Computed example of a mutant assay.
Amino acid sequence: MSKTVLITGTSTGFGKLSALTLAQAGHTVIAAMRGTTGKNAAVAQELAALPNIHVVEMDITSDTSVQNAIQQTLAQHGKIDVLVNNAAVTGYGLLEAYSLNQVREMLDVNLFSVLRTYQAVLPSMREKKNGLIINITSGASGFTMPFMIPYFISKFGIETITEGIQEELKAFGIENVSLQPGVYPTEMNNGSKTGVNADREDIIAAYGESSAQAFQALGTALFGKMAAFKMDPQVIADGILKLVNMEKGTRPLRFPLDAIAQGTDQEFIDSRAAIKKRWLAAYGYQPS
């Protein structure tokens, strides 16, 4: 059955691929992006010319823009069956070398934007007692790594939203899934899309060459594996399509798609869920 799917951040990467993939599968795609008459005008026109794709202006850092885009979509299509929170930026550097303004920007784009879209779309989903929200997080969302701490703060936050709100929305028939990709060759990782990076040069210098070498070693390892495993972003778009097409009630809370992890991501998810179950039992709380 065809669904109306709103995807954020469709000008590049996973978002654009997902818009194309779902539209080709027969779903009605609302391709949300900012700058539809400015810097992203060309891609907006490209997508809007395709069957089953409707482009909408959305700046995920603006409460008003998010609300307007959701209301415009509901007015035109009557419903939003699926929301895919895809838009995000990455960022690298020492935690101490991040100014607070840079951390705020990271959280505004990656985390607060998700809260904005939830608050904008949930009233209509609750009214219909139906909906699916897919949040793109990270393969390392259950733990952290050096030189990417603000980024992982934002992704940890989305994991927290997904897991906690699943229980809160159960009575309304709304499902939530955290899709956890690994490292893929998209604009976010190849340098063509600006990230939110550490900006305090004096602190970077104070840490010295050993820190720079450790950062370089981490990047070499991650991107070397990405090449060795031939990571294809289409896997994520296909994964989103699979989740959309799944029968209600069968979708997992977390959906890892990372060949590099070689199954350790699913092992981590399963072990964490088992420990949480025992923890809840110890406290005498049983989710409904």
Rank of each mutant, 00 (worst) to 15 (best):
N85M: 01
G13M: 04
N101V: 14
V84F: 10
A32L: 06
V55Q: 00
E57N: 14
G13A: 06
T28P: 11
A41T: 04
E96V: 09
L94R: 14
I53Y: 04
T61K: 14
M58F: 11
I70T: 12
G15W: 00
V55C: 02
Q76E: 15
H27R: 04
T8M: 01
P51D: 07
M33C: 07
G13I: 02
L74N: 08
K16I: 12
H77I: 10
A69S: 15
T37A: 12
L17K: 08
H27W: 07
T21G: 08
S99I: 09
A88T: 06
T64I: 14
G35W: 11
P51N: 07
I70K: 06
T21H: 08
L95K: 11
A88K: 01
T8H: 00
R34F: 13
G13H: 03
H27E: 05
S11W: 04
K79M: 10
T10Y: 01
N86Q: 04
A19L: 00
D81L: 08
E57T: 11
T12Q: 15
D63S: 07
M33H: 08
T73G: 09
V56K: 05
P51L: 06
V29H: 05
A19E: 04
I80H: 05
V56A: 07
G78V: 05
F14P: 04
A49E: 03
A41Y: 03
T73Q: 09
G9D: 01
I60S: 06
V82R: 00
A49S: 15
F14M: 01
T36N: 06
E46I: 06
I30R: 03
Q76M: 14
